[in-house]
Amino acid sequence: MSRELVDTSKIPGWGVDADTRNNPTYPIRHREDLQTDGLNWDRPTQQAPDVEILQSIEHNRLPAVVGTSTPPTGLSGMIRRYAFRRSESDWWHWLLLMGADRINVVEGVIEDLSHGKVPNIPAEMGGRAEWQHNKKGLAVKVAVLAGVTLGLLALRRRR
């Protein structure tokens, strides 16, 4: 807690950007700088992507440049394609994409295994940093995990 007031005379640069004209409409909309109206600006060259690009239905044309990272694939890709039939305003658009993201994680593990790679999940989750800087927290997590596992095993035996 700190209750001391700060002496502004000791702040380097205090007030140098004070501007009484900075009312709440400045500087977000410099409409006077507009040289075109609507979609009629001088467009950049159109990129011709060689991978599948999912496009928002709120766009009436593909933007001039697009990202080509990780095109949609597999079951998650099918869900993403379906999600992109809906607008950005539709809650289902986003919930479907979130669902696809979770399925994509499983697909990622399967892909690793199919390439003979077993993902080192503790290392991917920063286990070394946890060991170096939060041994107590790590011990609690291990204890909770062990407790839950033993509890599940005990329940299974009872059945």
Binding site: R29, R31, D33, L34, T36, W41, R43, P44, A64
Partner: peptide, 10 residues
């Protein structure tokens, strides 16, 4: 892009 309506407005 520096060219669209929004980039022109900063």
């Amino acid at each position: 892009c520096g060219k669209c309506q929004f980039c022109q407005q900063g």
